[in-house]
Design a protein around this nucleic acid. Structure first.
Length: 565
RNA sequence: CGGGGUGUAGCGCAGUCGGUUUAGCGCGCAUGGUUUGGGACCAUGAGGUCGGCGGUUCAAGUCCGCCCACCCCGACCA
């Protein structure tokens, strides 16, 4: 393509709204155009990069037996009601009605639809396993789009769904996807970390996310550099500080004037925080509940939400808390009834805790579970922080910001049961198909590639993703000989099967070189009066500062690496 | 949805304590000329509902009210 005719100009300055590197570079290079918050158009350069990403993904998925199809964007609400995910997605769902008032949504994902399609096409175990995928536009009315293409409301996503007859086969499918993902990221020039992930309210078994360490990322990864344990903070576990059991003492009510927070109370009793019990009031789908955890820990609301299987979880307001008869600053599970109590398992470790007395300005001393209070559920709902102990090896955990560039998820039979996707097994019985789903956000992946492959001058495209493989600069193009030589080379490279961006503009050398650095194609070839005279072509790799002078006949050989694999 | 911020030419910004006339500057863009190996120079020129609506006023980019858009933090996020 001739740069002189390409839509999308490079700019020296960046719109003030961009503050992540990838967003800035995509705007500066003219790859994207913002249509509205979280909605972008891809200009020719950006679209070429997107297609390269898709190509890499398709290659790897086809190798493991993936079959590409394309499902509709518009989906009837009916199938979403069957799985209950219409309410699970809530306001994130873009909905609309047709002229007959039938309700549709713009698909935020396609589990419901693919399951419906498979249900009508699969009869027997002989039809399985299946790996079906598409690259399709998804719509989610995110409350807060951000970071350019990092989080948007309309985006292309590769979503693959696996269908298997038994667990063993599902494991096999899952593992082949994990391997394919690793190849995809490697081809994209990315180093990702595979972490254990929360599987959400829908349930399901194994779930992993592929994370890219990035300080501006929106996820937090907890990891152990000793044994390699790594998990999304939403899911992460830790070995909680074990307390020595003391002799159980009788419950005592103590006046604690003005002491409300855990810090103040622990201070007052001259004990460390792990000897106190923290009690919080939550509203879970409008039901007020009590949540109990040891004073040294905080609640992980994702874990709590999953255990409650509720959609909306939030701390109760002071008004709601008081309406339940609680005293803010002295809330306690001791001596209360008629309200659901969820407790973190940390409270079972020690004894003789300090806790609120449900009486203004008073706390209990020597609170013991289960002697003094009741809990409906006891499980791990604690938030893990850097410095906590690794659940696998006991070393100190670390934490890092990251961005999710893919997930893999064993769904099991959640969807196949609700949508009646069953097969006839060898033994003659009908069984629900075991499913998995696997997604990669294309635009976000592209943004991630730029985040990890740039310098202060611009993008440094990995060979497989570069919109063009070669950037051909003709300096002093008004020189007839230069123009002739450049045109000839341009044609020859195209014939050799290379994607060439030809800078045929009448611009100064400085502008051309700076744009070549900004646009970041793997190789820059330069033709100028100087090189024409010497019958040479100048070659420079974007990733290096070295300049090579090559005889025209050797160019093809030098560029072989671009066309391999 | 809560907190903070921004909105003036394609982009970056100045002007905003109320005062005339043609709302400026840099980059970019157009035309002509001189240049040509790391963002050249000269000349001329095009380009604006000052986010929108309403109000106050003899007079509003500037003051007041409402709304909208966009960005950041939080909430939210299979």
């Amino acid at each position: 393509m001739r740069l002189s005719t390409m839509l999308g100009k490079t700019t020296r300055q960046v719109p003030a709204e961009a503050d992540t590197i990838s967003h800035q570079l995509m705007l500066k290079t003219g790859m994207i155009y913002q249509v509205a918050t979280g909605i972008y158009a891809y200009l020719p350069l950006g679209w070429r990069a997107i297609n390269k990403v898709c190509q890499v993904i398709r290659n790897e998925l086809d190798i493991i037996g993936g079959q590409e199809l394309s499902m509709s964007v518009l989906q009837p609400m009916e199938i979403w009601r069957k799985t209950g995910r219409d309410t699970a997605f809530g306001d994130n769902l873009f909905t609309l009605k047709d002229r007959r008032d039938r309700e549709f949504c713009l698909g935020p994902t396609h589990e419901e639809l693919i399951t419906t399609i498979v249900a009508s096409n699969v009869r027997s175990y002989r039809d399985l396993p299946l790996l079906l995928y598409q690259i399709q536009t998804k719509f989610r009315d995110e409350p807060r789009p951000r970071g350019g293409l990092i989080r948007v409301r309309e985006f292309d996503m590769m979503d693959l769904y696996s269908f298997d007859a038994d667990e063993e086969s599902l494991d096999k499918s899952y593992n082949s996807l994990v391997q394919a993902y690793k190849h995809i990221y490697a081809c994209c020039g990315l180093s990702t970390t595979m972490v254990e992930a929360d599987s959400g309210a829908i349930g399901g078994k194994d779930s992993h996310e592929f994370m890219l360490p990035l300080s501006t990322g929106e996820d937090e990864i907890i990891f152990c550099s000793e044994c390699g344990y790594s998990a999304n903070v939403e899911k992460a576990e830790s070995t909680k500080l074990k307390l020595r059991k003391e002799q159980t003492l009788p419950l005592q009510e103590i006046a604690t004037p003005g002491k409300k927070t855990i810090e103040e109370v622990a201070d007052f009793f001259k004990v460390s925080k792990e000897h106190t019990i923290k009690t919080l009031v939550y509203s879970a789908d409008d039901e007020i509940i009590l949540v109990v955890i040891r004073g040294d820990l905080d609640i992980n609301e994702i874990k709590l939400k999953n255990s409650l299987k509720c959609h909306n979880l939030r701390l109760a307001s002071d008004e709601e808390t008081i309406a339940q008869g609680f005293i803010v600053g002295a809330i306690s599970p001791v001596g209360i009834s008629g309200i659901k109590v969820i407790s973190d398992d940390s409270i079972t470790s020690g004894n003789n805790y300090i806790a609120g007395a449900n009486k203004a300005e008073y706390h209990f001393k020597n609170v013991n579970y289960p002697r003094d209070f009741h809990a409906d559920t006891i499980l791990d709902i604690a938030a893990v922080k850097a410095g906590h102990k690794c659940p696998k090896c006991g070393e100190k955990l670390q934490s890092q910001k990251g961005i999710e560039v893919g997930h893999t998820f064993k769904l099991g039979t959640v969807f196949s049961e609700k949508l009646d996707a069953k097969y006839l097994d060898k033994d003659g019985t009908r069984k629900p198909i075991l499913m998995g789903c696997y997604g990669i956000g294309i635009g976000r992946l592209l943004a991630a590639i730029i985040e990890q492959n740039h310098d202060d001058k611009g993008i440094i495209w990995p060979i497989n993703i570069a919109p063009f493989q070669v950037h051909l600069c003709a300096l002093t193009i008004t020189d007839q000989q230069v123009q002739k030589a450049a045109e000839e080379l341009y044609q020859r490279l195209i014939v050799a099967g290379l994607d060439v961006l030809y800078d045929d503009r009448q611009e100064s050398a400085g502008i051309k070189f700076n744009d070549a650095d900004l646009l970041g194609m793997p190789v820059r070839l330069t033709i100028s009066p100087r090189t024409v005279k010497a019958n040479q072509i100048e070659l420079k790799w974007r990733s290096s500062d070295k300049i090579h002078l090559i005889a025209p006949d050797d160019i093809a050989k030098q560029l072989e690496v671009l066309t391999e694999g």
